[in-house]
C-alpha cells in the first residue's frame, strides 16, 4: 500500500531531478475545468498532461486549470502558452491528443495544427 511516509523519498527524487533542469521559462498548459469541460472529459485530459510531464521529466512545464473558456461546444479546451507568451488553443481534447501535444508542441516546439481552434470553430461556438 502506498503511504504518506514514502512521500519523503519521492521529495528527494523530485528535488534531484529539479537540480538537473535548466531554469529557462517553459510552457504553461492550462485546462478548462468548468462544468462543461469536466462533463466533456477535461479531468482525464489534465491527468494525461500531468503524467506526460512527469514521464518526460518536464517538471518545469506548468500544468494548471482555469474556469469557463467560453465555448462549451468545443470543450475540453486547453491553452498552451509558450515561453514568449504565444497562446495556442486546442479544442475537443482527449488523453491521446494530449500525449501528442506534449510530444510535438512541448518537446519539439511544433504546435499540433490539426487540433487547434479555427476561426470557423469560433464562429460556430
Amino acid at each position: 500500500m502506498k503511504s504518506l511516509a514514502e512521500l519523503a523519498e519521492l521529495r528527494q527524487k523530485s528535488l534531484d531531478k529539479m537540480n538537473m533542469r535548466n531554469t529557462d521559462t517553459r510552457e504553461r498548459i492550462v485546462v478548462g475545468m468548468a462544468t462543461c469541460g469536466i462533463a466533456a472529459g477535461a479531468r482525464p485530459v489534465m491527468n494525461t498532461f500531468v503524467e506526460e510531464v512527469n514521464k518526460r521529466h518536464l517538471g518545469d512545464v506548468s500544468v494548471g486549470m482555469t474556469g469557463c473558456m467560453g465555448m462549451c461546444a468545443l470543450e475540453p479546451m486547453v491553452d498552451v502558452y509558450d515561453a514568449d507568451g504565444t497562446k495556442t488553443t486546442y479544442i475537443h481534447m482527449t488523453p491521446e491528443k494530449a500525449k501528442r501535444v506534449v510530444a510535438e508542441h512541448i518537446v519539439n516546439g511544433q504546435p499540433v495544427e490539426e487540433f487547434t481552434i479555427t476561426a470557423k470553430d469560433q464562429n460556430n461556438a
Binding site: 500500500m1 502506498k2 503511504s3 504518506l4 514514502e6 512521500l7 519521492l10 521529495r11 527524487k13 523530485s14 531531478k17 491527468n47 500531468v50 503524467e51 510531464v53 512527469n54 517538471g59 500544468v63
Partner: peptide, 11 residues
C-alpha cells in the same frame, strides 16, 4: 509537483 500528484492519485 507531478511526481507527488501521481503518487497521491494512486494512494
Amino acid at each position: 509537483d507531478t511526481v507527488i500528484i501521481g503518487y497521491l492519485k494512486e494512494m
